[in-house]
C-alpha cells in the first residue's frame, strides 16, 4: 500500500480502511503510515545512546531538540538515539455488549474500532521493542496475555482479539488490577473502553494501578451518535447491558440536554483522571486510527 500523505492508512476513514483487509494487514498499514508521519526509523528511538541528528518535525518531543545547534545555526534539530527495549505495556480492552454497537451502518462498532486500535498499538510497541500484553474483559476476564516483546506476541494478541466477549457487564476494576499485576515493573497501561461503567469503582482501580508506578492512558471510545443522540427521532431507548434501563424519549426534545450531559460527563472524566495523572482522550469511531495511536504513543514516549 502506498504511504503518501494522501493515502496514509492512519489518516483515512476507519470503516473504509477496515473493509480493505484483515485486522493484521490493516494494523500494519496503520503503523507504517503512522511511523512515516513521524519520519522515524522503526529502529531509531529516544533511548540513551545517541545515534544521529535529524530536522525537527512537528510532533517531536521538545526535550530532544539540540538547543546548541539551534543557537549556532538557527536550525531546529533533534537528537536520535539507539533503541532500547525496556518498557512493559498492557492494553486493557473492554469487550462488553455496550462496545458492540454502532450508531450508523457506515461506521465500525466501538469494539471493532477498538480492536483495530489495539492491534495497531501492539504492533507499534512491539516494533519499538517494548513488551506488550492484552487483557480483554467484560463481566469477567476473557483473555489475559502477559506482556512479551517477541514478534510472535503480536500474533497472539491478534488471535485473542478474535475471541468472543460481549457480556452484560464490565468488570473494569478487576481488569485494571490484573493489568497492574501483569506489568511487573513501572510500565504503561492503556485502557480502551466506552467508559459506560461505574465511575467510582473505575477510578479506585486506576488509583491502584497508578500506585504501582504505572503510567495510565484512557482511550474513551464513543460512537458519534452517542454524542449527538441522533440514532432515532423517538423511541424507547434501551441499554443493551441492562434491559431494565429503558427510557422513552423524543430526540428533538432532549437532544440539547443530552449533549450537555455528555459534555459534562466527558469533562468530569477528564478532570478526575487528570487529577490522578492519567492521560485521557475521547476517540470517536469515525476518527482515523492515527488519532488514538498518536495519543497512546505519546504516552509511551513520556515513559522512560
Amino acid at each position: 500500500m502506498e504511504t503518501s500523505r494522501a493515502t496514509r492508512a492512519d489518516l483515512i476513514d476507519p470503516a473504509q480502511l477496515a473493509s480493505l483487509g484483515r485486522m493484521e494487514i490493516v494494523a500494519k498499514w496503520v503503523v507504517d503510515g503512522f511511523l512515516q508521519g513521524l519520519h522515524r526509523s522503526p529502529r531509531k528511538g529516544f533511548s540513551v545512546e545517541f545515534a544521529e541528528f535529524r530536522p525537527y518535525q512537528p510532533g517531536d518531543d521538545l526535550r530532544y531538540i539540540d538547543w546548541k545547534i539551534v543557537a549556532r545555526a538557527d536550525k531546529w534539530m533533534v537528537k536520535q538515539f539507539e533503541e532500547e527495549t525496556n518498557m512493559r505495556a498492557a492494553i486493557v480492552l473492554d469487550v462488553s455488549k455496550s462496545m458492540d454497537w454502532r450508531g450508523a451502518p457506515s461506521r465500525l462498532t466501538k469494539l471493532a474500532y477498538a480492536e483495530q486500535v489495539v492491534a495497531a498499538l501492539a504492533l507499534l510497541l512491539i516494533r519499538q521493542k517494548d513488551a506488550v500484553g492484552l487483557i480483554r474483559y467484560d463481566e469477567t476476564l476473557r483473555s489475559v496475555i502477559p506482556p512479551r516483546a517477541r514478534n510472535v506476541q503480536w500474533r497472539r494478541i491478534v488471535s485473542a482479539l478474535e475471541e468472543g466477549g460481549a457480556g452484560n457487564d464490565s468488570d473494569m476494576s478487576a481488569a485494571l488490577v490484573q493489568a497492574g499485576k501483569l506489568v511487573s515493573r513501572p510500565g504503561l497501561v492503556v485502557l480502551i473502553s466506552d467508559l459506560l461503567v461505574d465511575e467510582e469503582a473505575t477510578l479506585n482501580a486506576v488509583k491502584v494501578v497508578r500506585a504501582g508506578g504505572h503510567g495510565v492512558t484512557v482511550l474513551h471510545i464513543m460512537d458519534p451518535s452517542e454524542r449527538d443522540f441522533d440514532v432515532s427521532p423517538e423511541g424507547v431507548f434501551v441499554d443493551p447491558e441492562r434491559e431494565g434501563l429503558r427510557l422513552p424519549a423524543t430526540a428533538s426534545e432532549v437532544q440539547e440536554a443530552y449533549r450537555s450531559t455528555v459534555d459534562h460527563a466527558i469533562a468530569e472524566w477528564r478532570s478526575k483522571l487528570a487529577a490522578l495523572g492519567v492521560g485521557y482522550e475521547v476517540v470517536f469511531t469515525d476518527s482515523p486510527f492515527g488519532v488514538p495511536l498518536r495519543r497512546a504513543f505519546a504516552s509511551r514516549q513520556r515513559l522512560p
Binding site: M99, D194, V238, D239, R242
Partner: peptide, 8 residues
C-alpha cells in the same frame, strides 16, 4: 419503537 442505545 425499541432502540438499543448503550448511553442510556
Amino acid at each position: 419503537n425499541r432502540v438499543d442505545f448503550p448511553a442510556v
